[in-house]
C-alpha cells in the first residue's frame, strides 16, 4: 500500500484530524461498499499529497486547511470510481497530481471549490469527443498565474473549453468573454500578448461563428470533420442518421435519439437533445440556401466537390453551416461556406 512520509504536510494534517477523517472514510464506505482503502490511500499519496505540499511551500499554515478541504473531495471521487488507480476518468488523476500543485496560490483561496469544479470539468470534457482534456488542462495551468482569483480562473476555463472544441458553449462563452478581466482576454483566446485588437474588436470578429481569429480563411466551401459515428464504435447513432433544421438549430436523429449539432471555427459537437425532434410546424427555409447535387455543393456562384457525399439522404442548413448525411454512414458531414469579405 502507498504510504506517506510522516513529516509530509498531508501526513501531519491527517494525523491531526485522524478521528474525523476516519469517520468520514467509514461513512463513505457505508454508502459505497466497493470503496477500497488501498485505492483511496494511493490517491491520497499520488493525487492529494502533491497539492498539499505545493500549498505548504507557499504557506505552511494553510496546508492543514487545504488538506481538510481536499480530503472529502478525494474521498468522493475515489468512492464513485472517478479517480484513483481504477478510475473511469484517468484525467482526474492528472488534474490532482499535475495541475493542482501548480495552482498553489489559488488552491489556498478556495481549495474544495477549485478542486471540485476542475474535477467536474475534467470529467465533462472527457465525455466530449471534440475536446482534448489534457490540452485544456495544460492551457489552464499556463494561464493560472495570471488569474487574480478562483472565479477568474474558472471563467478562463470556460472560454478555453469553447476554444478547444466545445462549440455548443459558444454563446455563453462569448458572454463570459465580454466581462473577463482585461489581462485574461488574449490568453484565453490563445492569442499573443502583442495582438493589438481590443475586446470590442475581438468580440465583433467572433460574432461570425466561422471567423478565424488566428488568420484569414479562404472564401468558399470547407469540409469540416464528420461528427457522430456508429454507436458500436464509440459514436452515437445506431442507424444512419438524418438531419433537419428547426428554429435555427440543426438536429441529427436516428430511430432512437435526437442530437443538436453545433459547429464553429473551433470545433463541432453533438449534444443529446432527447428521443424525438422538438415540436415544429415545419423545417427552416432559408433565403440563401446551400444546395448539394451529384456530390457538388453550391451557393450563389461558389461550388465545390465534396468528398464522400454519394447518396445524400438529408441536408440541413443554419446560417453558413450545412449538415449532410449519406446512406452509407452513421456520421454527419459538416460544411461551411465563407463568402467574400
Amino acid at each position: 500500500m502507498a504510504h506517506l512520509n510522516p513529516d509530509h504536510p498531508l501526513a501531519r494534517a491527517l494525523e491531526a484530524r485522524r478521528v474525523r477523517f476516519n469517520e468520514m472514510f467509514v461513512s463513505a464506505r457505508l454508502e459505497r461498499r466497493s470503496l477500497d482503502p488501498a485505492d483511496f490511500m494511493a490517491f491520497l499519496v499520488e493525487g492529494v499529497a502533491p497539492a498539499v505540499e505545493a500549498v505548504a511551500e507557499f504557506d505552511a499554515d494553510a496546508a492543514p486547511r487545504v488538506a481538510e478541504a481536499l480530503y472529502p473531495v478525494a474521498l468522493e471521487l475515489v468512492s464513485r470510481g472517478l479517480a484513483g488507480p481504477n478510475a473511469r476518468y484517468p484525467s482526474v488523476n492528472t488534474l490532482f497530481s499535475h495541475v493542482l500543485p501548480r495552482l498553489g496560490r489559488l488552491l489556498m483561496e478556495r481549495p474544495a471549490r477549485l478542486a471540485t469544479s476542475l474535477a467536474h470539468a475534467t470529467i465533462n470534457l472527457d465525455n466530449l469527443p471534440a475536446v482534448d482534456t489534457h490540452r485544456w488542462l495544460d492551457a489552464l495551468t499556463r494561464l493560472a498565474p495570471r488569474a487574480r482569483d478562483v472565479k477568474s480562473l474558472l471563467d478562463v476555463g470556460k472560454v478555453l473549453a469553447w476554444q478547444l472544441g466545445a462549440a455548443h458553449w459558444r454563446e455563453s462563452a462569448l458572454a463570459i468573454l465580454a466581462s473577463l478581466p482585461e489581462e485574461l482576454i488574449l490568453p484565453s483566446l490563445r492569442l499573443s500578448d502583442s495582438d493589438p485588437r481590443s475586446r470590442a474588436e475581438l468580440l465583433d470578429v467572433l460574432s461570425d461563428p466561422w471567423a478565424d481569429l488566428h488568420g484569414d480563411s479562404d472564401p468558399g466551401f470547407e469540409q469540416r470533420p464528420w461528427v457522430g459515428g456508429f454507436l458500436g464504435f464509440g459514436g452515437v447513432f445506431s442507424t444512419p442518421p438524418n438531419v433537419m433544421a428547426i428554429g435555427g438549430v440543426i438536429y441529427a436523429f436516428d430511430s432512437t435519439s435526437c442530437y443538436a449539432v453545433f459547429a464553429d471555427a473551433y470545433g463541432s459537437a453533438l449534444l443529446l437533445f432527447g428521443h424525438e425532434l422538438p415540436d415544429a410546424d415545419s423545417e427552416d427555409v432559408l433565403a440563401d440556401p446551400i444546395t448539394v447535387k451529384s456530390g457538388v455543393v453550391r451557393r450563389g456562384g461558389d461550388s465545390a466537390r465534396l468528398v464522400g457525399a454519394a447518396q445524400v439522404t438529408s441536408t440541413a442548413q443554419s446560417g453558413d453551416t450545412l449538415a449532410l448525411t449519406v446512406a452509407q454512414s452513421h456520421s454527419v458531414m459538416i460544411i461551411v461556406h465563407r463568402g467574400e469579405s
Binding site: 464513485r80 471549490r113 465533462n124 470556460k158
Partner: peptide, 16 residues
C-alpha cells in the same frame, strides 16, 4: 447549452 455546465457534476454540491 450553457458553459456553466462545465463545472457541474456528480460531486456533493456543498463542496462547490
Amino acid at each position: 447549452f450553457d458553459v456553466a455546465e462545465l463545472y457541474r457534476g456528480p460531486l456533493d454540491s456543498a463542496n462547490v
